[in-house]
Design a binder for these strands. Structure first.
Lengths: 225, 225
DNA sequence: TAGCCCATGCTCAACATGACGAGTTTGGTG
DNA sequence: CACCAAACTCGTCATGTTGAGCATGGGCTA
C-alpha cells in the first residue's frame, strides 16, 4: 500500500479589529523558503500534538502568548506545488483575538511579527494569500450566523463597539437603530450598570455577551445587516 | 526544523437518496487494520494527485466509476490515536450522487461496497462514525442554504422528488403547498413540457434546475422548511 | 447656553413565513 | 363510469422581520 511521505502543517488566521479596521497577524520568515517574506503563523505538527486543534493552539501561543481563544478549523490546502520543499498539506485555522489584550512576539523561526490591515497586505509566502481570502469569506459568514463577533471584543463592550466589528468585517455601514434593535431583541446581551469611558459625547452603556442565553434560544438568530 | 512523518488520506462521504431515505456508500475493508469492518471509501494521497480534490476524485472513481459529480472538502481529522498505524490525517470530502445512475464496484483493497441507510449504519472502522455524523450536519445545512439538493437528483425531476430529498435529509415532513410555493417562487426551476412516468394517479410535471438563473439572483434564497 | 454628536427609544408600512382549508385536475383502476 | 390518489391551484390569516422616519436623552465643548 503506497503511503507517500507528506508533511502536515497548521496555519493560523488570527484576526482582530483595530481602530475600525480588520487586521490579521503575520510573521516575517527567518529561513528559506520565502525567507524575509511575510506569512501566516504556523508550523509542522509534532509528535506531541494530540490533535490538529492542539497543534494550532500551540502555534498560536508561540506568537501571541494567549490561550483560551476562539479557534476553529477552516480548510485544508494541499496542492502539489504550494511548498517548494515537497508535498506539504496545511490545515488552516481561524482565530479571533482582541489586539489590545495581548502582546505579540516573534517565535524562534520568525524575524518579526505584526498586525496587518487586511486591506493592505504585503506580498505573502506560499499560497497564503489564497488562504487568507478564503478565511475572510468564512469570517463574514461566521459573524452573520454565529456569535463569533464577541470573540473579537473584550468582555464588556458597547453596542457601538459591536457594530464597528460588524462594519469592519462586512465592509459596509449599518443602520445604527436597526443594529441595536436586532441585538437587543436577540436576548443574548446582558446590560450592565456601567458606561464606557468619558468621550466628548454621551457615554454608551456596556453589555456582556451571555453564552448561556444564546444556547437556550430555540432557534439560532441571524445577524445579517 | 522538526517535520515528523505523517500520512494523509482522503475519505469520501458519498450520499444518495434512495426510496425516501438517505444512504451513504461504505466499503468493507479487505486488510488490517479493521479488516472486515465497514469504512468510508478513501485512501492515501499519492504522488500523482495534483491536489487534495484530485485525490478525492480519484478515490471516488475507484468505487463508483463516476466523475463530474458534486464533491466538496468538508473537514480534516487528525487525532493522534485515530489510526493504529501511526499518525494519519484524513481530509474528508462530501459527494452527492444519484444511486440509480451508477454502478458501484469494490476497489482492489476492499472486499465489498454497498449503500447503507444512514439510520442503520454498521459498526465502522477508525473514527468514521464521527466523520459521518459531522458530514450529516453539514449536509443538512448545505441543502438549506445552497442548491446542493439538485446534485442528488437526475437532470429532470418532479417537485415531489425534490421534496423527498429534503425530507430524507432533514428528517421531517414538509408541507407540500409551502414547499412548492417556495421553490416555484425562487425562480431557479425551469418547467418542462414533460411529465413523469405513468403512475396510478396523475403524472407530475418535470422540472430542471437552472444554474444560470440561480447565479443571477440578487440574494441567495434559503430553503428552510 | 447653544450646538454638536452620538445613544437610545418608538413607530409604522411593506414584506416574508408558516400553518392550514378548500377545491380542481388528471391519470389509472375496479 | 364512479372512485381513488396524488398533482396542482388558490387563498386566508396570524406572526414576525425589515428598513426607515421621527423624537428625545445625555454628555461634552465653545
Amino acid at each position: 500500500m503506497a503511503a507517500p511521505s507528506v508533511r502536515v502543517t497548521v496555519d493560523i488566521l488570527a484576526f482582530a479589529v483595530h481602530e475600525g479596521g480588520l487586521e490579521i497577524l503575520l510573521v516575517k520568515r527567518k529561513y528559506d523558503p520565502f525567507k524575509s517574506s511575510w506569512a501566516l503563523p504556523g508550523g509542522f505538527i509534532t509528535e506531541k500534538d494530540e490533535t490538529l486543534d492542539a497543534a494550532a493552539q500551540r502555534e498560536l501561543v508561540e506568537e501571541t502568548n494567549v490561550s483560551n481563544v476562539y479557534l476553529e478549523q477552516l480548510y485544508s490546502f494541499g496542492d502539489k506545488g504550494r511548498d517548494p520543499r515537497g508535498r506539504v498539506v496545511t490545515v488552516s485555522y481561524l482565530a479571533l483575538l482582541q489586539e489590545e489584550e495581548l502582546e505579540i512576539k516573534a517565535s524562534s523561526d520568525a524575524s518579526g511579527v505584526a498586525w496587518w490591515p487586511v486591506k493592505e497586505l504585503p506580498a505573502l509566502a506560499f499560497d497564503h494569500a489564497a488562504i487568507i481570502a478564503y478565511g475572510l469569506k468564512r469570517l463574514k459568514y461566521k459573524i452573520e450566523y454565529t456569535p463569533a463577533a464577541f470573540s473579537l471584543l473584550p468582555t464588556k463592550f458597547t453596542l457601538r463597539d459591536l457594530q464597528i466589528v460588524y462594519e469592519a468585517i462586512l465592509g459596509h455601514e449599518i443602520d445604527n437603530r436597526n443594529f441595536r434593535k436586532k441585538f437587543l431583541g436577540a436576548g443574548i446581551l446582558r446590560q450592565l450598570d456601567e458606561t464606557s469611558q468619558e468621550t466628548s459625547f454621551r457615554p454608551a452603556r456596556l453589555y456582556e455577551f451571555s453564552e448561556q442565553d444564546f444556547e437556550k434560544l430555540p432557534d439560532r438568530p441571524v445577524f445579517i445587516f
